[in-house]
Each structure stands twice: as C-alpha cells, then as structure tokens.
Amino acid sequence: MTCSCITRRRALGMAAFTALATSSLLAGCGDKAAEQQSLAPVEIDRSTSCELDGMLLADYPGPKAQIHYAGQEKPSFFCDTIELFNTLLAGEQVRAVRAVYVQDMGKADWNEPKGHWIDAKTAVYVLGSKRHGSMGPTIASFAQEADAAKFAGEHGGKVLRFADIKLDMVDLSGGALHDTRM
C-alpha cells in the first residue's frame, strides 16, 4: 500500500509538473510571438511626433526612422535620419536597441513618405545630397544599392552603408549650418 501511494504521489507530481512546464512553454511562445510583433515597424499617422523635438512626422518631407527599445512598448520616432544616427551614435545612448527602421526612399514619396519600412542596418544611404528632410540636409535611405546610386547621380551625395556613418556626419545643427538666410 505504501508503494502505490508513493507512485500515485509521484504520478500526480509529474502530471502537475508537466502541466506547469507545458503552460510555461506555451506562454513563452506567446511572449516571443508578441515580442516579434512588437518589433515590427509601426506606421506613422497624423499624430506621430518626433522623439527629440516633438515635430509631427507627417508634416515634413524626407525619410523618417524609428527605434524599438527593449522594455518600451511603442517605438521612438524620428522626423529625420540625421536625428536617428545622432541618437544611435551618441555616447549617451544607453538603452538597449531591439530594432531600427528607416524608410526606403526608392519606393516612398519623398514629399509625403508613408510606409516602406526597412531594417536600418541593412539599408544603403546617401549622405550629402541636395534633397532636404524635415531638418534640412538629411541622409536618404534605400533598400537597394541601385536606387541609392541613382538618387546620388540625380541629387548628389555619397553612397554609404550603415557602419560607414559616423557621429561627425550627423550634426544636429543640420539646416542651421547650411541656411544662408540665418
């Protein structure tokens, strides 16, 4: 009789453990799916504002950007890629970055960019073109190197990869440095 009680207790314990482990695994899968979904690019709307200066993104031309930080439910948006790179490259940046997106200007309308979000780390950029974004001179972002080269041919600038962009290239005084009317 003693043996069957121990066996029954073990069986009940194992069943409880299995149920708990299964529910934990399933919850973990759900969390991962929710986490992956939360890392997907988020479309801007008329009320989406810039993390740094509060400007409404939809009111200005040029590529926009977003950073998904660990522990932050919604992404931080930037009205200009210069602001994005300045934030990422600044020594003060200590928050863990989960994902970064920019707009593919090979597909998006420069004057009213919507959608066409791409991974910022795999994008190709054009620095120094004549096209301006919300803050003046900007860095155009593209999914395809051919689109970046075509843009540089039409508007000037140098084609670069994500890792080629350095802090001294993304001065936030941007347009003020180039505006002769000031």
Rank of each mutant, 00 (worst) to 15 (best):
S24C: 15
K74G: 02
I139E: 04
V100P: 02
L56G: 07
R10M: 02
R131S: 11
L20A: 14
M182Y: 10
G174T: 03
R131D: 03
C79F: 09
A19T: 09
H68F: 00
M105N: 11
S24T: 06
A90Y: 04
L88H: 00
C5K: 06
A143F: 09
T48R: 13
D109A: 11
Q66M: 08
G156F: 08
I139D: 04
L160E: 13
A65Q: 10
K166I: 00
Q103H: 14
C5N: 07
I67E: 02
I118Q: 05
A70M: 08
A40C: 12
Y125G: 01
A108G: 14
L89E: 00
K32I: 14
I82R: 08
F142L: 01
D31Q: 04
A70E: 10
A70I: 01
K107W: 13
L160N: 12
P113C: 07
I118T: 03
A163H: 15
M14P: 00
I82E: 03
G30V: 00
Q66W: 07
G157C: 10
Q93I: 00
H68Y: 04
L88G: 01
R181E: 05
K107P: 06
S129L: 10
A99D: 01
R95C: 00
Y101Q: 08
M14R: 03
P75M: 02
K107I: 14
I118M: 03
H155D: 04
T81N: 15
Q103S: 09
P41H: 15
W110R: 14
Q93M: 11
V124L: 01
M14C: 01
A15C: 05
K158L: 14
K158Q: 15
A120Y: 08
G91H: 05
H178Q: 02
L52H: 03
P41D: 08
R46V: 15
D59W: 04
M135P: 01
S47T: 15
A58I: 10
G30L: 01
A120Q: 12
Y60L: 01
D59E: 14
S49M: 11
D104L: 11
A65D: 07
L167W: 02
E92A: 14
G157T: 03
F77V: 05
Y125I: 04
A108H: 14
G175V: 01
D171A: 11
K32C: 08
M1S: 06
C3D: 08
P75H: 01
L160C: 12
R98T: 07
A123N: 10
E92H: 06
S24G: 14
P41S: 12
K32G: 04
V100T: 03
G91M: 04
R161K: 15
D80T: 05
G157F: 08
G156A: 06
P113T: 13
P61L: 09
R10L: 05
L25I: 12
D45Q: 10
G174L: 07
A120D: 08
Q72G: 02
M1I: 00
V170S: 03
I6W: 01
G115Y: 11
H132E: 15
G128W: 09
F17I: 05
Q72K: 06
T2Q: 10
